[in-house]
Nucleic acid binder design. Structure first.
Lengths: 336, 336
DNA sequence: AAATATTAAGAAAGCGCTTTCTTAATGTCG
DNA sequence: CGACATTAAGAAAGCGCTTTCTTAATATTT
């Protein structure tokens, strides 16, 4: 690979001049600029970004740390960030944390070591204190799906409470009164927020949560299967089921059918996230769309503002969007 | 961030010595080694990998170029590569090509500019010649889902022909004789291979492809919907349908049900890939598992062999695995 | 027209490491 | 025990750029 020296020699100028035209410093004579450009093309020269990064202490690239690589959710997030940054001529370096403290720390160190100009993160293990410290001492960060005091402007999150509220309200509006709930792991903020919204809607409809209709799941398909199985074994009637995410809803649908239920007549089921497969299910799943793409894009824009002087409008809290499909129906007054 | 100079000063040794302990060159006195390690911990020192990479001309990281970031297929591929390399203490840098020539070239240049030691690619736009040139002149590569002459050892691919054969054979074994086929875009190698296998199985069963039962789809859900719609409009009976991937199978299932068919009694449907959502479908989809995780892992191992002196056994061609679920049934001798 | 300000280009230092070269200290052999 | 080989550490060059400093040429001011 050609170096800047060879370009300079071929163009008959100094390396400083080559560097200036490469970085569009306007203080260079038109004639020399052309000579340099010709040489660059002739040699098919590409600046070594490692050297450039070392010398200039910036890299025009931002790191992104996700929990998983192989889920539609993080897929959309990566896609949004990558596209937004690419459009601004920045590069994206992706790393995985798996929600393990050690791996998340490792990922951050790796990205910092790579001279990233900023970080966009979806992490669960790193503490608020650690995040504040990273942002203060090391590198600007943006956070997705998290609220950290002192970093409010950098946090892009979803109004999960509102989503939980809407899901439940949709069912009460349809006349359901016996509504079961399969929650996410309650120590997770989004899980508890969704549940809080659910309870608010129940109260508003003059209802309250029957503990026998509540099950704490794990956000996986198995949570939906195990949850519905256990709920049905408790022998308390219910005509509708809220699942705190689509994965559990998918499990619940499978389970319900295995138990001989007729969907959606015997049981209305609503999910959360509008995961890629939600409309592959049968019946197609009514759910709340989690605008993760938009949130990823916004996080990228926030970074473009803070480190690359752009002036995008930033929205920190997003609202889920209700998606009506076929898995919910008016209450038939029948028992399940 | 501390530099190697500060570590050297604190430890009372030269930077060379610090560098030696950092890189485990065994020619350093135990006592000094300990001093250095103490200093490293005290300062929480992390070598700047950009500087290290510039100086040593290697980076202990390999680039991976995928077509998409947000599909389960590439998700699994990235996950496999990342995990395999991480286990070997190498890092992964991910980039997207979107099957566009310009973006794929850009991605390669980016990764090379980042001093990656090697590249793992899933690309469609870059020509065989270009790939050979990259591997010869610039950087070692591994290729997934592709066969390039002269790069045989570096190609990890699936026996699509065999998969197509098994899919069809499964149906003929069940007694089906009128079998429709929704293909992928035939210019794509995997699509034509799958079709070739299908035809081989037909011939083996004493059948042949009725052109009225053939439709060339696009590998998307819409291809399944449009395909089945058109096939049914042709008014030629069939009792089974092969879709060249799961996405189209999903579309076909939706479409079939919309048209009032009873699945799988009225129509057996088989997919290909065993995509993440295949078992979310109803009926759960019989399909052929595409071992993309294993292939990603193998590509990573190939790179570990070629540039990092490991000695893994390499398998270049993988076989799909038949997954029996509920979307196929013995032929009822009825008409659809 | 002399003194000063402005501009455009080159020279050279330096980013934080690795690695070769050098030197000093030790060990080995006839 | 002196000549030579071996080892362990430091000194210094260099990876390929950017950017500050410097200088020479031109423009502006009084």
């Amino acid at each position: 690979m050609a170096t800047i020296y060879e370009v300079a020699k071929l163009a008959g100028v100094s390396v400083s001049t080559v560097s200036r035209v490469l970085n569009s410093h306007k203080t260079v004579n038109e004639e020399l600029r052309e000579k340099v450009e010709k040489a660059v093309n002739l040699l098919n020269y590409r600046p070594n970004s490692v050297a450039r990064s070392l010398a200039s202490n910036r890299s025009d690239s931002v790191g992104i740390l996700v929990s998983e690589l192989n889920t539609p959710f993080f897929g959309e997030m990566m896609r949004a960030v990558e596209l937004t940054l690419r459009t601004a001529n920045k590069h994206t370096i992706i790393t995985v944390g798996h929600n393990k403290l050690e791996q998340e720390e490792d990922g951050v160190d790796f990205l910092i070591g790579r001279n990233c100009d900023a970080l966009i993160m979806h992490v669960e293990a790193l503490s608020d204190d650690m995040l504040r410290a990273i942002n203060r001492d090391k590198i600007p960060i943006a956070l997705i799906n998290r609220q950290v005091q002192g970093l409010e402007g950098a946090c892009i999150s979803l109004n999960d409470e509102l989503g939980g509220y809407w899901a439940c309200k949709h069912l009460t509006d349809l006349g359901h009164t016996r509504i079961a709930y399969i929650a996410g792991p309650i120590h997770k903020n989004d899980a508890s927020q969704r549940l809080a919204g659910h309870n608010r809607a129940l109260k508003e409809a003059g209802l309250s949560m029957d503990p026998r209709l509540f099950y704490e799941g794990n956000y996986y398909e198995s949570g939906g299967i195990d949850g519905l199985t256990e709920l049905m074994e408790r022998n308390v009637d219910f005509t509708a089921l809220v699942c705190a995410n689509d994965w559990m809803a998918s499990g619940a649908i499978t389970c319900a059918r295995d138990k001989g239920l007729n969907l959606p007549q015997d049981l209305s089921i609503i999910g959360f996230d509008n995961d890629m497969f939600a409309h592959h299910l049968y019946p197609k799943l009514t759910t709340l769309h989690n605008p993760i793409y938009d949130m990823g894009e916004m996080a990228a824009k926030y970074i473009l503002n803070t480190v690359y002087k752009q002036k995008n409008h930033i929205k920190n809290v997003f609202e889920p969007q209700f998606i009506q499909r076929q898995s919910t129906e008016p209450c038939q007054n029948s028992t399940s």
